[in-house]
């Protein structure tokens, strides 16, 4: 009965013919949004295949007259640190993911399942620190790195990023949702806390860990502000920093800049398309992070 009643109201909600005009209107607005959102990317792809002279033509052409792959080869070889920047970015993302996931899942598990004095005080104090904008801590964080000799070093970028609240909060919420029977069964079998965590809890947390990993990869791969403060030497730059230094280096060679930008943008766009579900679901909850 209930389903029948619901089916009827749904039918009332969407009268096929009355809504036609608003449907056309909605679709038109949607099409305009889509064009504005995608045009810069499409023009970038086309620009990355243009010759140095064609990219300066007025009026600009939308489709290049000759498709030339040369820009991609040149950006890779002519600026001889380019492969190094990609390697640095991959290393940073890899290190960050492993360390971040390990640290946050352990701490999140403690907050979700263990009683210890000070737990709520620590948790609340730290949630409050979310309000502090990152730029306020640029100077002191840089000075701390300077003391321990990690300025102009990839670990100087990576280590301060592990002091993050979002991941622990995220994992705490997730572990709270797991059934307590998991641990009870394990403790009957005589497994200690560490073994239970590693062999029972973590394998059950894969969906949450994957969502966290994908978001963190995006953050690390795209990061600009903090790496810019930490590293100077050309061989230590990450890909975004290297790309940003391009326009100063090559000025007018927009065909190279655009081809270089593709190396940063394409992996992340593919990731979003393949793992849409994770992004859409977690983006709203991670938005608090800003």
């Amino acid at each position: 009965m209930a389903t029948l009643a619901r089916a009827q109201t749904v039918a009332v909600q969407q009268p096929r013919f009355r809504l036609r005009i608003s449907r056309v209107l909605f679709l038109t607005i949607a099409a305009i949004f889509t064009a504005v959102a995608l045009a810069p990317f499409i023009l970038t792809v086309s620009g990355s295949f243009k010759t140095k002279s064609e990219i300066l033509d007025w009026p600009p052409t939308i489709i290049p007259t000759v498709i030339q792959w040369q820009n991609y080869v040149e950006v890779w070889t002519n600026s001889h640190f380019f492969p190094q920047w990609i390697a640095n970015s991959i290393f940073l993302a890899g290190f960050h993911l492993v360390a971040y996931i390990a640290i946050c899942s352990a701490a999140g598990y403690a907050f979700a399942r263990m009683n210890f004095p000070g737990a709520s005080v620590i948790f609340i104090a730290i949630l409050g620190s979310i309000m502090i904008p990152g730029q306020v801590l640029w100077v002191p964080k840089f000075l701390i790195l300077n003391q321990i000799g990690l300025v102009d070093n990839l670990f100087g970028i990576a280590l301060p990023n592990l002091a993050d609240v979002f991941g622990v909060f995220f994992m705490t919420q997730f572990f709270k949702s797991l059934p307590k029977e998991l641990e009870e069964a394990a403790s009957i079998d005589g497994a200690g806390t560490f073994r239970t965590f590693r062999q029972i809890i973590l394998p059950n947390a894969y969906p949450a860990l994957a969502a966290l990993a994908i978001l963190q990869f995006q953050g690390s791969w795209n990061a600009f502000q903090w790496p810019l403060i930490v590293v100077r030497s050309p061989e230590h730059l990450t890909l975004p920093l290297g790309l940003a230094s391009f326009q100063g280096l090559f000025g007018v060679n927009w065909n190279w800049v655009l081809a270089g930008a593709m190396f940063n943008a394409v992996p992340i766009i593919l990731l979003v398309i393949f793992f849409q579900k994770y992004f859409i679901r977690s983006a709203a909850s991670s938005a608090v992070k800003g």
């Binding site: 959102a37 995608l38 791969w221 795209n222 790309l243 398309i273 992004f279 859409i280």
Partner: peptide
């Protein structure tokens, strides 16, 4: 539509800034 509109948010600030400078 949802994924197309969301793409500008996932590209890095460096890439989108360079694209718009151009």
């Amino acid at each position: 539509f949802r994924i197309a509109w969301y793409l500008p948010c996932v590209a890095s600030s460096v890439v989108t800034t360079l694209i718009f400078m151009w």
